[in-house]
């Protein structure tokens, strides 16, 4: 790699400045807010040190919401990456209609979250839902399964919907990584290992490992910090079954108008995601970060 002696400002600042503008001040502001009592009801913004954080950690929702968020992340992240990789591997092949299937895979991507939520509500709807209708037609069930209104099923349902929205991006990146593998490597692999499973494990996987790590990190982050799809589908219910920690940022800030506490939740989420990312990158060794 070549060396530039001075910081290449012309090359970097166009990208760095907008990001800095949208990050440094807002984050500093949010941090400041999280250490003050900022509410709509009481004027004045007294410094309260870590009171907001204490309030979040001792609140009645914290344990449930954190548990739900971790469970949601732990279910959704591997599902997205595994299913995405399998689909990408499958779509690498050419078969009759493969181009059409490749395009259809992207469908979930083009939909704003609100639309995805509506579609999946329609799938899971207890009485008019397609899923129950299908199961009834196949005579597998008689009544209706309350997909979104029984606690355990609701969490699974929102995970399925979330995975659905995230798969296209995983497929795109894995296919890009797969296309970068030297075809001779693959041919050598085809000769050396008879079992496709072993071939993937020893030949293909090492080549796309870096991309998979990127995807795992990105998806863990997305699953842990996004809430709009889940909120639109279940409103966090039934009870607190699908209440996610990230949702509490919004609820505290814009529903309770307690901006200090809302920001405190946000930084708790940041801290936990940082730990998650560190754990993931350590658990999945990759030369990707070392080479930076």
């Amino acid at each position: 790699m070549w060396t530039i002696k001075r910081f290449p400002a012309y090359w970097l600042l166009p990208a760095l400045l907008p990001v800095a503008l949208m990050t440094i001040y807002p984050v500093a502001y949010a941090l400041w807010v999280s250490l003050h009592s900022v509410t709509l009801l009481f004027p004045g913004e007294p410094f309260v040190w870590l009171d907001n954080y204490k309030r979040v950690v001792t609140s009645n929702y914290f344990r449930d919401a954190l548990g739900n968020s971790l469970l949601f992340t732990a279910l959704a992240t591997p599902l997205v990456v595994i299913v995405g990789t399998l689909v990408a591997l499958f779509l690498q092949r050419r078969f009759f209609g493969s181009q059409i299937v490749r395009s259809i895979v992207l469908l979930p991507w083009v939909l704003p979250g609100a639309i995805s939520a509506v579609l999946w509500i329609w799938v899971f709807h207890p009485s008019f839902g397609v899923l129950n209708g299908l199961l009834r037609d196949l005579h597998l069930i008689n009544g209706s399964i309350p997909w979104l209104t029984s606690p355990r099923l609701a969490l699974i349902s929102v995970v399925v919907a979330h995975v659905w929205t995230q798969i296209p991006f995983a497929v795109v990146l894995i296919m890009a990584a797969l296309s970068g593998i030297n075809s001779e490597t693959l041919e050598a692999g085809a000769i050396d290992c008879r079992s496709p499973l072993k071939r993937f494990r020893h030949i293909v996987f090492p080549e796309i490992k870096a991309m998979i790590v990127v995807l795992v990190v990105y998806n863990a982050l997305t699953a842990f910090t996004s809430y709009d799809l889940v909120y639109a589908m279940t409103g966090g219910g039934p009870g607190t079954a699908t209440t996610l920690l990230s949702f509490q940022i919004w609820r505290e800030s814009f529903s309770m108008y307690d901006f200090g506490t809302g920001s405190a939740v946000a930084f708790i989420v940041v801290a936990i995601s940082a730990v998650l990312i560190a754990a993931i990158t350590r658990a999945l060794p990759s030369d990707l970060f070392a080479s930076e």
């Binding site: 949010a30 800030s253 946000a266």
Partner: peptide, 27 residues
Amino acid sequence: YVFPAKKLTFMFLILSPLVPAVALVTP
């Protein structure tokens, strides 16, 4: 290329999306 402060700027870019957007709506 290798250049001064490369690691710092790269880490800044990578870490900046870490903060949940909803916390930054107001500022």
